[in-house]
Amino acid sequence: MRHRRAPSPGPAGALADALAAEYAAVFAYGRIGVRLADAARSAARDAEAAHRARRDALVLQLSAAGDPVPADKAGYALPFPVTDAASALRLAVEVEERTAAFWRVALARTTGADRDRALAALTDCAVRATRWRRTAGVNPITVAFPGRPG
C-alpha cells in the first residue's frame, strides 16, 4: 500500500493548498448567498460557481498526476458568524482575500501553464474582492498587493 505523501514544497503541494482554500470558499459562499438578495445574491452564486470550477479542475489535475488530493471537509470554521447581509458581504471579501493569498503563494512554486492558472485565479479573487467591497460600501475598494498577507 502506498503511503499518502505530505504536501510537498513543489507545485503539487501549492496546488493542494489552493484546493483546500477553494473547498473552504465554496463552503463559505453557501452561507453567504442565503443572506443576500437580488444582484448581490446572483453575484454570490457566480462566485461560488467560479470557486467550484477551480476546485474541480484542481481535483482532476492532481489526481491525473498521481499527486495527493486533500479531502473536502463537512464544514469549515468561519472567522465570524454570518447573520445578515452586512456580515455576509464582509465574509465574501475575506474569503476572496484568503483564497487569493493561497494562489499568490502558488505563483512562486509553479511554472508555465500552472503559473498562468494561478495568476488567473489570484486575479479573479482580487477582482471579486473589489466588487464585494464596493457592494459592502467599504473604502477603498482596492488594495495595493492582492493576496499579500498584512
Binding site: R104, L107, V127, T130, I141, P146, R148
Partner: peptide
C-alpha cells in the same frame, strides 16, 4: 512578466498584475 519571472519574483509581479486588474 509574471509568467517569465523567476520564482522569487513571481508573487510580487503577479500581485501587481492582479492589482492592475482590480483598477
Amino acid at each position: 512578466l509574471c509568467a517569465e519571472a523567476p520564482a522569487e519574483r513571481a508573487a510580487l509581479v503577479g500581485s501587481i498584475a492582479a492589482a492592475r486588474a482590480t483598477h
